Simulated assay, not measured.
Amino acid sequence: MEHLVEQVRPHVPALLARDGNQAVTRVQLREILRREGLRGGRNDRLSLVLQRLRTEETTTKTRSTAR
C-alpha cells in the first residue's frame, strides 16, 4: 500500500486544482491509477490509500496555514 501511495501522491495536487475539491476522491484516485497504468486498485486497498492521502493533505494544509 505504501508503494501505491508514493506512486499516486505526485498526481494528486493537479487533480485537486483541476476539480476544485479539498480532498482526493475515489473517482480521482481511480483516474490516476488508470492513466498511469498502476496496479492495486482493489476497493479495500483504495480505501486505505485514500485515507492516507487525505491525512497527508490535512496535515500539509494545517502546517501551511499555521505559518
Rank of each mutant, 00 (worst) to 15 (best):
Q51H: 14
R18N: 04
H3A: 14
P10Y: 07
Q51K: 14
L38N: 09
M1D: 01
P10L: 07
E57G: 02
T58G: 09
T60D: 11
R52C: 12
T25E: 05
D19F: 09
N21H: 05
A66P: 01
L48G: 13
R26H: 13
V8A: 04
N43T: 10
K61F: 06
L48Y: 10
E36D: 14
E36M: 14
T60I: 06
G41W: 01
T65Y: 15
R63E: 11
V49G: 07
R39A: 15
T65F: 15
S47W: 10
E36K: 15
S64T: 14
A14G: 09
T59M: 10
N21I: 01
H3G: 07
N43Y: 03
H11E: 11
L4A: 09
A14H: 07
T55E: 13
D44F: 12
D44R: 15
G20C: 01
R63L: 12
N21W: 01
R67T: 08
L53D: 09
P13I: 00
E31A: 11
T62C: 07
E57D: 10
T55C: 06
N21M: 00
P10W: 06
G20T: 02
D44N: 14
E2V: 08
E57K: 03
R63V: 07
V49I: 12
R52N: 09
P10G: 07
P13Y: 00
P13D: 01
R35V: 15
R30H: 10
R30D: 12
L50D: 06
E57M: 04
R18A: 12
Q7Y: 05
R26E: 15
E6H: 11
A23Q: 14
N21K: 00
V12A: 02
A66I: 09
D19R: 03
L48I: 09
L38V: 08
Q22G: 02
V24D: 02
R54M: 00
G20Y: 05
G37I: 04
H11Q: 11
S64C: 13
G41F: 02
T25I: 03
T58V: 14
T59L: 13
R52F: 00
H11Y: 13
T55Q: 12
T55G: 03
E56N: 06
Q22W: 11
E56G: 04
L38C: 08
T62A: 14
Q28D: 07
Q51N: 14
G41P: 02
V12Y: 03
R42C: 13
E36Q: 15
L46W: 04
Q22M: 12
R45P: 01
E36L: 13
V24P: 05
V8G: 05
L50A: 05
G37F: 06
L50Q: 04
R34I: 06
V49H: 06
L4T: 08
R54N: 06
V8L: 03
R9Y: 03
L33F: 00
V24F: 01
I32W: 08
R67E: 11
E56F: 02
R54P: 00
H3S: 12
T25P: 00
R9L: 08
R26K: 15
L4V: 08
T25F: 01
G40Y: 09
R63H: 09
